[in-house]
Design a protein around this nucleic acid. Structure first.
Lengths: 337, 337
DNA sequence: CTGTTAGCGCTTTCAC
DNA sequence: GTGAAAGCGCTAACAG
């Protein structure tokens, strides 16, 4: 079958008028005879007419589409970001196209190309844990397509960013642990390539420092954010001659994984080992004991990033400000620490 | 700034050749002088050239894009569907555009229009819990654009569908509860508009029937899938003069919610009340006790739906088969029932 | 092997 | 108030 979609030409022919008039009627142009407009609208509806955005984009050279590039889709974090961003975007008349890189640098590069090829009007991204080269994102900058980073940002690019106060969140989390009497606090840290890793680590260090506790390098374990590795390192920590009495994890999934390991060993949480996470994932309130964690305003972050993007879009490139919006975290104290 | 993206014309001009030649070189057409091709490719790279898919789509009248319409993005279910679908799609050279309706019929209609306007080559959908009218999806059928439903399907449309064996899953779940000695088994059911609700309910009924247990209508509670309502109804069940000794929930989030309520009452799970869910969400293995649940092959479902879509795409409309692919579920027995 | 031409569906001057 | 014509970036015959 010929998959012919109805076009303004079909409508024009049917009504014996020109396609320009149809176009004007459809887009709400003032100079159209009300009669004509009514007829056009009615027929368009009857023929299931849908304006071809691809053609529109071609002539206006704007696609009315925002791109979102995220590293994964397994935790509730990024889907929630998408919800927030979509809300803002659609209110402004924009569509959203999402792609996830599965934490793979290769895929991330491919995704960026797809966004470019589809002529998104702007793109918001959180980088994969593998990414150390950011050429594929600099292309956007060169082309004058607004880009904003959120959560996992790219330090070397001077563009708007949305983050939470990772340093402060970590600092307060660790300070809280110290306040409950913990002294040997371990930290499962993220890969050094991610700035969130570095900032949370710094918060951890400074909290210990402030309270006169020694920083024991053997208790600081950077890993690749995979739950398998997390499991291994937690076991390693427990096997230490002097095991930690608390564990601050860079994220909730790992903290939860750690709790499983600790419970399996028959150790008590938080008496033997307290556990604190970061993000306040959906599952964190459900497990036993509840996970103490640093909550991030996730949906708000998605909204903010989208707004920042829309802001940049109407500006001259030269006006772009490398604004950094820092959202506040909140320490949620539950049973685990 | 003029946001001029480099086009094949720019390249052609620079190289003093025609744009057709550039086009051919870029797309790998055989009839191109190797020298010329090399020059084109090199320059294209240097100029950050990205083929304009919008223009391409316009001429080929295919966008190489699949649409996915889902009702929500809060549980891990739909994001995982997206992961699966994206994997299949991108292997076949297709992009994916996702939109979530937030369980709102209005938004779902709007999303369908967007897909249409963006000329997706096919669309896979799971309907919102509010949807009773499916005109917005029938448009796809009329236009000859492949559509496949998954999970929450539309019964009145003769198109391919991917589901799990809801009836069987529910049946076995309830039979399992009966096997553990439970006799007053309540069912938190979904809205009657969704076929998954009806099928799971039927599985529940038939299991009771088979084992000679009475079907007590007061223990069957259809609700709107919101956790707030779930909470209210669970309390109501517990307050019954003869409360149930087991609860089979249409999904995991509700089952988990129910467990919270039950625990808060100081009742034992599963001794006083056993709980069984449906889906095997991420959190279900983490809570205490672990939730017994009917696992669905989620990612597989996403892949299957995408494959079905690609299949239909090369066919004549008349060839479409209203295939129903039924994937198998697996009862995962944990501590809750 | 390469250039020319037409056209995908739409908006937008520019006339009338 | 309406039509004719140009053009967005690209591919696909059709000639050479």
């Amino acid at each position: 079958m010929k998959r012919h979609q109805t076009t303004i030409i079909d409508i024009a022919r049917e009504l014996n008028i020109s396609k320009s008039t149809v176009s004007r009627a459809l887009t709400g142009h003032p100079n159209v005879n009300p009669e004509t407009r009514k007829a056009v609208l009615a027929l368009a509806d009857r023929m299931d007419y849908q304006r071809n955005m691809l053609a529109l984009s071609l002539v206006t050279s704007r696609s009315n589409t925002l791109g979102i590039i995220v590293p994964e889709f397994l935790t509730s974090f990024f889907p929630q970001i998408v919800i927030g961003a979509q809300e803002v975007a659609s209110k402004a008349g924009y569509n959203v196209i999402v792609s996830q890189s599965n934490e793979s640098y290769e895929t991330e590069v491919a995704n960026a190309k797809v966004m470019l090829a589809n002529r998104v009007d702007g793109v918001m991204v959180s980088v994969s844990k593998e990414s150390r080269n950011f050429e594929h994102f600099k292309i956007f900058q060169r082309k004058g397509i607004p880009i904003v980073f959120f959560n996992r940002v790219c330090d070397e690019m001077q563009v708007p960013k949305v983050v939470v106060d990772d340093y402060d969140g970590a600092f307060r989390a660790v300070e809280h642990l110290i306040g409950t009497g913990k002294r040997r606090i371990a930290h499962l840290a993220g890969p050094d390539s991610l700035s969130i890793s570095r900032k949370r680590l710094q918060g951890y260090r400074d909290a210990l420092l402030k309270h006169g506790l020694p920083i024991r390098e053997e208790l600081i374990i950077p890993y690749d954010l995979s739950t398998e590795k997390a499991r291994i390192y937690v076991k390693h920590l427990l096997d230490l001659p002097e095991p930690p009495d608390a564990l601050f994890s860079i994220n909730d999934p790992t903290a939860i994984e750690a709790m499983q390991v600790i419970k399996a060993r028959g150790l008590g949480i938080p008496q033997d080992i307290a556990v604190v996470g970061f993000s306040n994932d959906y599952a964190s309130a459900l497990i036993e004991p509840g996970l103490t964690t640093v909550a991030q305003p996730v949906r708000e972050m998605g909204k903010t990033a989208a707004r920042l993007l829309l802001d940049q879009m109407d500006r001259e490139v030269s006006d772009w400000k490398a604004i950094i919006r820092t959202l506040k975290t909140e320490l949620i104290i539950r049973g685990s620490g």
